[in-house]
Amino acid sequence: MFVIVDDREIVTAGYASAFEREGYAALELKPAELVDWLEIASPADLQAVEGFLLGVSPYRPAFPTQIKTRCPDAPVFALDDRSCLETTLQMFAAGADDVLRKPVHVREILARVGVYRRRVSQDDKGVASGDIEVFFDGRDPIVFKEVMELPRRERRILEYLVKNKGRRVTKSQIFNAVYGVMNEGVDECVVESHISKLRKKLRMRLGYDAIESTRYIGYMLKQPDRVVANAPNAELRSSTPAKTERVNIRAVALA
Rank of each mutant, 00 (worst) to 15 (best):
M148P: 06
M148E: 11
C71P: 02
R117P: 03
V106P: 06
G138E: 04
C84I: 15
V120C: 11
K145F: 11
V147N: 12
K145A: 11
A111L: 12
T87M: 15
V76W: 05
N176C: 11
L100S: 05
S129Q: 11
L89M: 13
V104T: 02
P103Y: 04
H105Y: 10
G126V: 08
R107C: 12
F77K: 01
T87D: 15
A94I: 08
A93C: 09
L158P: 08
E159P: 00
P151N: 07
Y116P: 04
D123H: 15
D124E: 15
Q122C: 12
I142A: 15
K163R: 13
E108G: 12
E159Y: 04
C71R: 00
E154F: 07
E149I: 14
R82N: 12
A74F: 06
N164T: 10
F77C: 00
V162P: 03
R168H: 05
R139A: 10
T88V: 12
A78C: 12
G130C: 03
R117C: 01
G126Y: 05
I132V: 09
V113W: 06
D81K: 14
I132G: 01
G180Y: 03
R155V: 03
C84P: 08
I157E: 02
S172R: 13
A78N: 08
K68C: 01
V115L: 14
Q173D: 02
V76L: 03
T88N: 13
L100C: 05
E146R: 13
L79W: 00
D124W: 15
V127A: 08
E154V: 04
N176T: 13
V169T: 07
K163C: 07
E108N: 15
V134M: 04
A93D: 10
E159K: 08
N164H: 13
G180K: 02
C84N: 15
R117S: 04
I174F: 01
A78P: 06
G166E: 01
I67E: 00
A74T: 02
S172W: 04
D73F: 14
D124L: 14
V104Q: 00
A78D: 10
A94Y: 06
T170F: 04
V178F: 03
C84M: 13
D97T: 08
K163M: 10
P75M: 01
P75Q: 00
E159F: 03
K163H: 07
N164M: 06
V113K: 10
R156F: 07
P141D: 06
P103V: 03
Y179S: 01
C71N: 03
Q66A: 14
P141Q: 07
E86Y: 11
I174C: 09
P75R: 02
Y160M: 12
A74C: 02
P72I: 00
V169Y: 02
Q122K: 13
D123A: 14
D140C: 08
D140T: 05
D80W: 14
E149W: 10
F135R: 08
T88C: 12
I142F: 11
V143P: 12
A94W: 07
V143S: 08
M91Y: 13
R112W: 03
A96V: 06
P103T: 07
G130S: 07
I174Q: 00
R155A: 00
D80N: 15
